[in-house]
Design a protein around this nucleic acid. Structure first.
Ligand SMILES: NC(=O)c1ccc[n+]([C@@H]2O[C@H](COP(=O)([O-])OP(=O)(O)OC[C@H]3O[C@@H](n4cnc5c(N)ncnc54)[C@H](O)[C@@H]3O)[C@@H](O)[C@H]2O)c1
Ligand SMILES: NC(=O)c1ccc[n+]([C@@H]2O[C@H](COP(=O)([O-])OP(=O)(O)OC[C@H]3O[C@@H](n4cnc5c(N)ncnc54)[C@H](O)[C@@H]3O)[C@@H](O)[C@H]2O)c1
Lengths: 234, 234
DNA sequence: CCCATTTTGTTCTCGCGTTCACAAACTCCT
DNA sequence: AGGAGTTTGTGAACGCGAGAACAAAATGGG
């Protein structure tokens, strides 16, 4: 009824699983680097920091790539996960906003090794444009459309101040970018069909602070109770 | 029965809600900056990028800080959320690994304005130690204990290469740090009672790549079907 | 060749989070 | 004062994800 290959029939991978596949991929790469050719779900789960039942369930959404009684072939599974995620070829990426963070991102070697290729660095500030960062010359933001068309870019990274984030996102969307990674602490609205993921340092720290405060309060309360009951640990 | 204040009686805030409180806090700050003194759950939900039912339910875990028929007082709610998260005072933070990313973090002004204060920058590389970054002199990693004791630091940030992450984390935990924000692409194991949060650029990009690939495949499949059925949209 | 052992793939159950829908509570206008 | 109009706070239904538990499949030894 369609020309689809049998491998993608009705496969809907849960979002929670999709978010873990890259972790498994990284763990498998680490195992391979250590010369390990086969591993059990237990081994891989430990390396990835999850429990083995969850790991097996996640992998089962991709297909049956293990061998019962044996485990998984590291290289084979690695390839299958990479194929599923879509990082067997490199994705071209543009970074907009070459300030403190943009510089760090441009210098990040992990991009290339994990399925991405920075094809351009863009900034609106004329004093930044023309600088060479990590061997790439920063180009003016207005060149975005030309670059996106030339390299068929689908993924854009926003590393501008928060006030500029929505404008940059709007421009990206208008030009045809359909996936955005946003480092600016701002909610960006995009039309249906465009994915936005947010990386927010302050939020992460504030979540830690919340739990830290609870730990302190809990300790206080426990101490208070201990005093009241006259109880003392051994 | 205890000396606890009435405000923390049996309040267990769901983790998903905790993760959104910082977003609400930021949205409220933005509203306040625009001179808005009161807002409805609908307004705030829009600013925070969530739906209003979820927002109200989240806020209800903190208490009843709104007024029916009116909405929320922006400053009052902002204070209540900040108090709940624990960012009414600043948390001292140390950053370990002053490379590309560490530099960007050290220069990030958003720390200070959101409840955190960088008390030290640390690195194991002697050629980095002594450099002044964002007005702070980088100190040798071995000074960690002294600094943590002096400033009563509970939160540490890891921005070292992946291979060093576990060692750094172990050292932090040994010294008494109980919350870690890890930027290195590595799973770090910590004892119970220590919180670790991970920020991983590559994982975020790979998740985007997965959906991007699906969009492409979906379009292909739709096109294939269109061809097969002889169907053509207007 | 058969059986014990290992390890996967899957089913089932439980709990959490999201969303809907509405009663309660407040304001403002007449 | 009373009623119309708003908006909050929450009870209930639903769906998804986590984890336990087990059947199916492969290996290797006797
Ligand atoms: N530095 C960090 O470690 C860090 C951490 C977390 C979040 N962030 C966030 O990341 C973003 C960037 O941070 P930063 O420290 O690099 O800021 P920055 O001010 O150093 O750099 C921002 C860059 O964006 C450029 N820019 C501004 N408006 C633009 C536009 N409309 N189009 C294109 N480029 C534009 C500026 O010219 C500048 O070069 C900010 O939103 C910040 O809140 C930074
Ligand atoms: N640069 C980025 O934009 C980026 C993005 C995502 C993730 N990361 C990750 O963040 C981490 C840092 O990235 P980077 O580009 O800044 O790397 P980098 O190599 O520039 O900096 C790492 C720093 O850590 C120091 N270091 C190494 N071992 C240490 C130890 N045991 N104790 C203390 N300090 C030590 C090094 O001296 C160096 O200064 C890496 O794990 C990287 O994968 C970086």
């Amino acid at each position: 009824m369609t020309t689809r290959s049998s491998t993608d029939a009705a496969r809907v991978i849960p979002e929670a699983t999709v978010a873990r596949l890259p972790v498994y991929l990284r763990a498998l790469t680490a195992l391979a680097d250590n010369g390990i050719r086969t591993c059990s779900s237990e081994d891989l789960a430990t390396a990835a920091g999850v429990n083995s039942a969850k790991l097996r369930k996640d992998l089962s959404y991709l297909g049956s790539y293990g061998t019962r009684g044996v485990g998984y072939d590291v290289d084979y599974l690695r390839y299958q996960i990479a194929r599923e995620i879509g990082v067997t070829q490199d994705w071209p990426v543009v970074i907009v906003g070459i300030g403190n963070l943009g510089h760090a991102l441009a210098n990040y070697s992990g991009f290339r090794s994990r399925g991405f290729r920075v094809v351009a660095l863009l900034d609106a500030d004329e004093s930044v444009v023309g600088q060479s960062v990590a061997g790439v010359v920063v180009r003016p933001f207005r060149d975005l459309e030309e670059i996106v068309r030339e390299h068929d870019v689908a993924i854009g990274v926003i590393a501008t101040p928060a006030v500029a984030a929505q404008d940059v996102a709007d421009r990206m969307v208008a030009i045809g970018i359909t996936s955005i990674l946003n480092f600016a602490p701002a909610v960006v609205a995009v039309p249906e069909g465009v994915d936005v993921r947010k990386v927010d340092l302050s939020i992460e720290l504030q979540i830690l602070a919340y739990h830290e405060q609870r730990k302190a309060n809990g300790a206080d309360a426990a101490a208070a109770v201990a005093v009241e009951t006259g109880g003392g640990a051994a």
